[in-house]
Write a protein that binds this DNA or RNA. Sequence first.
RNA 1: GGGCCGUUAGCUCAGCUGGCAGAGCACCGGACUUUUAAUCCGGGUGUCGUGGGUUCGAUCCCCACACGGCCCA
Length: 513
Amino acid sequence: MQDREDSLVGSRIVKLDRLREKGIDPYPPRYRRTSDTAAAVAEFEAWEKAGSQDEEASPAPEHALAGRIVSMRVMGRAAFLDIRDGSGAVQVMFRQNVLGDGYELLKDLDLGDFIGVGGQMLRTRTGEVTIEARDVTVLAKGMRPLPEKYHGLRDVEIRYRQRYLDLIADPEVMEAFAQRSRVINSIRRYLDGRGFLEVDTPILVPVAAGAHARPFDTHHNALNQRLYLRIATELYLKRLIVGGFDRVYEIGRVFRNEGIDQDHNPEFTLLESYEAYADYNDVMTMVEGMISTAALDARGTMSIPYGEEIIDFAPPWPRLQLKDELYRRSGVDIDEYPGDEALVRKMLQLGIDVGVRESRGRLIDKLVSTFVEPNLVQPTFLLDYPEDMSPLAKAKPGSPGYVERFEAFAAGMEIANSYTELNDPAVQRERFEAQESIRERYQDEEVDRLDEDFLTALEYGMPPTGGLGVGIDRLVMLLTGQASIRDVLLFPQMRSRREDQGEAESGEADALQ
RNA sequence: GGGCCGUUAGCUCAGCUGGCAGAGCACCGGACUUUUAAUCCGGGUGUCGUGGGUUCGAUCCCCACACGGCCCA
């Protein structure tokens, strides 16, 4: 921090010193306010409405309010400040004849400081509900200037790196995160109301299984063991179904060591739920109910504008067969291309950039995400996926090569993924082994990993179960109209600036020399 | 990983063909006892992202790097 007296910070240091010279603690331990600003304003307006003309019998309410100074209009021997707290803002009036020597404090106040103000509420000539300060207490001196009040904070890098400034500068940002909280709350209430038990499963795991993703790895010193950050909660939640819980869910952070873009952050929030004696049809009904309710709770309506579209989450949502829809959109009947080479040739014909060697599951995934997903604007279920891309899902009776799995889409984005869970331990072992052999054949490809302890659990018997995964951040994007995942994460992952990077990193570099 | 764009005062942004670094808000000094982006008078507070290069001279041209954004893979 610069300490030159002519700098913006420097002038605040001068004021801080002056406060201390006057015997004022610029960071006192507490301040007892009588109300927040919104409640005080509401109370005053109610008092006005009651309309007592007799100020003696019914004087205007008195309060001690506190907040951050967000604007100041100083006019000689009177001044108007706006202070803001978490509930809202209120105007404060300072007058020299009321405050006496206390009025001098104004000279040492800056935008950004927190103050407490005691006095009577009134309405000014221009109609603003105001507290007239009879006493003023400095609660916390701000040492840096705030972003400009009119244009706000436009620099997205600062908005993400210093989110607190973004929150100070833009009330809509605060509202978006309040909506996020309401979405998650609503989902919790929905599941709790249906008898689901919320649980916590390990984040540090010996095997990063349950999804196709690259994990972060770490090391536990005392155990001298390699550990991973979980990429999914699936296999632990299923162990709990084996253990006898009928309905469990977890809303937790998972970690995938992959790229960062508009809808990927290396850590994100995943909801997974498992319900014994249910199948993917039951889960579909639940997803419609849960997400439409979340829309209603967060936004007050099930019709949510997103980009150019209005997305209507009211159930029921159309249910389309993946195979049929893919054929309709691309002209490719995947069953006519049982061999991967024929499928690759067909895809190249269609102008899809197919890598040197890609597994069948991945090829089909590319077809679907190219031809089908972008067209699923209104909430839609896509049903019955090829087994190749779904190692944890149970086969669909009468449809060899397909499993009972659905994904839900809205605005072209995946918002849910669900299976009738595979509970045959021998088949599950074969599926894991098939995944491992894909890893060997197609080197760069991420596949699911074999979790021996999970197979042991399955061998004890898991009832028929319907499972669900929902990417909460993307759902919140949809429900709050945000185009980037960074706008629904308070602190999105950012690359450290070089000078900020930790000692460990440079230490390692030194050690290599 | 590739392409394009951005980085100038605390914030939001100008800065022409290479010639003394600019505005608004914020800030500092002064006036002002009912203001609402208060107003009026005076003041520019800067590592032009970083490091090289070209040039008499670089915010500007060239190269590399850093960080960010968008598009593509």
